[in-house]
Computed example of a mutant assay.
Amino acid sequence: MHAIKIRLSQEELEQLENLAGAGYSLEQIAMYLDVPKNDFIAEFYDLDSFVNYHYKRGLLMVDAAAGLALAANAAGGNITAHQQLEKIRMAQFVEREKKRIIYGQETP
């Protein structure tokens, strides 16, 4: 782990999550937070950093909210929602298997 070059408040970490979930790039988020772009990107590539964690959490939060809404629609009998949910599940399964097979990562 490299030395932390930037410090973000809890509010800024929440903004990072929201911006990541909305699809903004690392460069755009660094500009929004008014932090040095290169330092911010270096923090992101440190897999143990707060920047990396909160960026990925922002993506997950949006995906999870959409997935939960889709699951509720599927449970209510919406066939299209069910088909979309199955497609998402298969993509997630394939991604987990790739990580397990290619990188040797244990996945639940």
Rank of each mutant, 00 (worst) to 15 (best):
H54M: 09
I29E: 09
S25P: 07
L47D: 13
K56Q: 11
L26I: 05
Q84D: 11
I41N: 09
L47V: 13
F93T: 15
F40D: 06
H2E: 01
A65F: 03
V94G: 01
E27D: 15
V35Y: 07
Y45D: 12
L70V: 02
D46H: 13
I41R: 07
E95T: 06
G67N: 11
E17I: 05
N38G: 02
M61G: 00
A3T: 14
K98R: 15
N52E: 13
D63G: 11
Y32C: 05
A71D: 08
H54D: 09
R89L: 14
L33G: 05
G21R: 07
Q28L: 03
G67P: 07
K37C: 05
I29D: 01
L13K: 15
A81Y: 00
A22Q: 13
I4K: 15
A65N: 06
F44N: 14
L59A: 03
E14Y: 01
Q83H: 05
R100P: 02
A30V: 07
A71R: 15
I88S: 04
A75L: 05
E106R: 02
L33T: 08
M31D: 14
M1N: 13
M61F: 11
I101Y: 10
R89S: 10
Q83D: 04
A72I: 11
L19G: 00
Q28W: 06
Q105V: 15
E11A: 05
H2T: 01
D63P: 02
D63E: 12
N38P: 06
I6V: 15
V35P: 04
R89Y: 13
H2I: 02
G76Q: 05
T107G: 07
E27S: 05
Y103V: 00
K87F: 02
N52Q: 10
P108S: 06
T80I: 14
R100W: 07
K5Y: 03
K37D: 01
Q105H: 11
I6E: 13
L13C: 02
H54V: 02
A3P: 03
P36V: 00
V62N: 11
R96A: 09
G23S: 01
Q15M: 12
I41T: 08
Y55L: 02
A71Q: 14
E43K: 09
Y103D: 07
Y55V: 09
M61C: 03
S25W: 00
G77D: 09
L8K: 08
I102S: 02
Y45E: 09
L26C: 12
L8W: 02
I101G: 13
M61T: 14
R57C: 01
Q84K: 14
A30F: 03
F93A: 10
Q10M: 10
T80W: 06
F93W: 15
D46C: 06
I88H: 04
Q84N: 15
E14H: 10
Y103M: 05
A81G: 00
A91P: 00
N52G: 09
P108T: 06
D46P: 06
G21I: 03
V62T: 14
P36R: 09
D39E: 12
G77W: 08
A69K: 04
I29F: 01
N78I: 13
E43W: 06
D46Q: 10
D39P: 11
D39R: 08
S49W: 05
E27R: 05
A30L: 10
K98L: 15
A65T: 10
G67C: 14
G76W: 04
